[in-house]
């Protein structure tokens, strides 16, 4: 197979785009895709300070690499989830990446943020699925780190497959509030929220992995142990089967949702956030979901009546 741009031997084939690329042309193509998404959705400018959430995985490190290459003012944020060897190794990868490129990396670890806040402990104490507790933790600490650091934008590495799987999950249960809030750019809806953007939202997981490989990025290949059996993986598998039978399906699913479906949901579900009575961050209800989770953890750690046994 030949490169679509220069006719040299192709190293990668992208069925959804009906294209093949040699290495230099692929790197050019990938950066252009990211830059186009940033421009088309007006995600951010070169004058804004970006906080990039990095997990040590291929997507976030590939994204940080592109943004730094393109001259954006980036700072990385690594959130240590306390998931044993997996967290230790992913932390290492993020640190090494930042050091090699002389980029600033901030580190927040759940264990140090409070007793019993590591993901396995929260999941055990609240009997919630680890990924659900993890999502709440990530949102809270990304928000507070962005606010505390005075950043204008929080950037995450969610890719096309993540967005398609999430959309499928939201559609299967017709979660209108979630559908209303799923978009590539979430404007700051409250003075304590910063804008949240996903520059890789139309770029597949395969494409980010190829970019990371070609750029020699040392990312964590192993999976988080909690991903095994996660519904998101099932959705991704179903979507990849559809994609195989009909290339371009995932992109059409996500792109058309953002173009025509999402605005319809947003029009009817525009609840304004209030303020959390505990931490002061924006909340839907009297407490934000993070503080509700912490309450549950605390209740389990000191059950009522434990101090005064009968």
């Amino acid at each position: 197979m030949k490169c679509t741009r220069c006719r040299a031997k192709a190293e990668v084939e992208l069925r959804a785009h009906n294209a093949g690329f040699c290495r230099p042309c692929y790197l050019f193509y990938f950066r252009r895709q990211v830059e186009r998404a940033i421009a088309a959705e007006r995600m951010f400018t070169h004058d804004e300070r970006l906080l990039v959430a990095v997990s040590g995985g291929k997507d976030s490190l590939a994204l940080w690499d592109v943004l730094a290459e393109c001259g954006y003012a980036t700072t990385g944020l690594y959130l240590g989830l306390g998931i044993g060897a997996y967290s230790a190794r992913s932390h290492e990868k993020a640190l090494k990446f930042a050091e090699q490129r002389e980029l600033e990396l901030r580190v927040v670890t759940l264990e140090e943020e409070g007793p019993g806040l590591a993901i396995p402990d929260v999941a055990a104490a609240t009997r919630r699925v680890p990924c659900s507790a993890c999502g709440t933790m990530k949102r809270h600490f990304f928000d507070t780190a962005a606010l505390a650091g005075g950043f204008e934008v929080l950037v995450t590495g969610h890719n096309l497959d993540d967005e398609a799987a999430r959309l499928m999950g939201n559609v299967l249960r017709w979660q209108r509030d979630h559908l209303a809030r799923q978009r590539p750019v979430l404007p700051a809806t409250h003075p304590k929220f910063v804008r949240k953007v996903k520059p890789l939202y139309l770029i597949s997981e395969y494409e980010t992995a190829v970019y990371a490989f070609m750029r020699g990025i040392d990312y964590i290949v192993e999976e988080c142990p909690n991903a095994v059996g996660a519904t998101q993986l099932l959705y991704k598998d179903v979507l990849n089967r559809l994609e195989h039978a009909s290339p371009g399906t995932k992109q059409a699913f996500v792109q058309e949702f953002f173009r025509s479906g999402q605005p319809a949901f947003a029009a009817v579900e525009n609840e304004e956030p209030q303020v959390c009575g505990q931490c002061g961050m924006p909340a839907y209800g009297t407490l934000c979901s993070f503080c509700r989770l912490v309450r549950q953890v605390e209740a389990r750690r000191s059950p009522p009546g434990a101090a005064a046994p009968a």
């Binding site: 291929k58 395969y206 999976e223 095994v228 998101q232 991704k236």
Partner: peptide, 8 residues
């Protein structure tokens, strides 16, 4: 493999 999972 390039697929990673979990909804976070």
């Amino acid at each position: 493999a390039v697929i990673s999972g979990g909804t976070g």
